[in-house]
Design a protein around this nucleic acid. Structure first.
Lengths: 215, 215
DNA sequence: ACCTGAACACCGTTCAAGT
DNA sequence: ACCTGAACACCGTTCAAGT
């Protein structure tokens, strides 16, 4: 009974490692087979084709997100800490996030934290459709900003401002200078999250009241 | 002096139309050449390879964004209306946005609206590094949520909630039901935008004060 | 059950050759 | 200046064949 040369586990591990190293674009079935020292076709037997392989990798990410820490004295703090933890993991798994995005399964990433968020919102008295809206607003903020930061950081060469767009007589020199340096996505994320959670801190004004901004 | 069979303009037009119809993934150089009734290699002479072609398409999107409308009685309303207009255009140009994203040039999309936003923020007395932060928070919100919505809507089959994740004894039946229906991304966007702009409405509290949520 | 090589139908891109 | 076909070096996937 000779041991198999590879297992499905080993295929996923190797694929994840390769992708984390070189990115999704440079990942090929043939390269993976080469790394595992098997024929390409062997991979098809173990895990199926490229799509099945990526499905499996995304499922791994989902599992990881099911065990995120959540700390804090108040419910709002716990929501914020969960959002930060989720974001950190997504940044760490940039390439898996990119895969999920390219496969249009980003909304699946809501699921592992939904129950925890719902529980904290319930503690704040936010329930029903209101809770669904806030929950999704937080998740969209966490995930979409991570998706975008990933692309932005990779293309950081273009992030520096083109000064030619600003006339020299623009009065706010400090602003122009601030825009010249690369975006601090962590700060932007935290600012946005804080804004999203602000209405939850002071009583509970109707979160669906848009203040007439709908334009 | 025979007229050329194709021009660079015509190539870009045809490419944009094809991509808008079938998506980026199904777009190929050979298919484009076929549609134009020329040899593939002719395209290389006119606009260069795939990368150059996509660069050109993204530049077209940038041009479009330079002429967005901005209306409203107050500066905050004008910022909101600009954000909504930018979002609408990005949704309309979903596939071009996807191209920009895949090429890591999403931050470039900030540029065409930066001056207008800076002007309105200045009217509100928000300047310097604070203005840069708010400006980027708004732009990240607009662009990243559009990037994500695009993927989410394409994969809408997965958007419906898996009820098995909720135990039957979860108390908030209305929430579970709300999560079962597909996400209303417009509502989520408006809610987030309103939250981002709220501190600008009532005086100007320090926007970098995170209320201790940094976790 | 596991692994292989050959083969198919694609890609993007280069380049010498035509007019 | 403009357009072509042939050719190169890749892809992912299928399938019959081996053990």
């Amino acid at each position: 009974m000779p041991e198999p040369a590879v297992t499905a586990e080993a295929v996923f591990d190797a694929a994840a490692a390769m992708i984390e190293l070189d990115g999704v674009d440079r990942f090929t079935m043939r390269g993976l087979a080469n790394r595992l020292n098997v024929a390409v076709t062997s991979i098809y037997w173990h895990v199926g084709g490229r799509d099945k392989l990526f499905d499996g990798l995304v499922d791994r990410l989902l599992d990881e997100m099911a065990h995120l820490p959540m700390t804090g004295d108040t419910a709002v703090d716990r929501i914020a800490s969960l959002a930060h933890a989720q974001r950190r993991l997504l940044i760490q798994r940039q390439h898996l996030l990119a895969i999920a995005h390219s496969r249009d399964t980003t909304p699946k990433l809501f699921l592992p934290v939904q129950r925890a968020l719902a529980g904290q919102l319930a503690e704040l008295g936010v329930t029903g459709a209101d809770a669904a809206l806030v929950l999704r607003a937080v998740e969209v903020h966490v995930i979409s900003s991570a998706v975008m930061q990933f692309a932005a950081v990779r293309g950081d060469k273009h992030d520096e401002e083109d000064p030619s767009l600003w006339t020299d007589d623009w009065p706010d020199r400090a602003l122009v200078e601030a825009l010249q340096s690369p975006t601090d996505y962590d700060a932007v994320f935290t600012y946005g999250l804080q804004a999203l959670l602000a209405p939850l801190r002071a009583g509970q004004p109707d979160p669906t009241d848009d203040g007439g901004v709908t334009a």
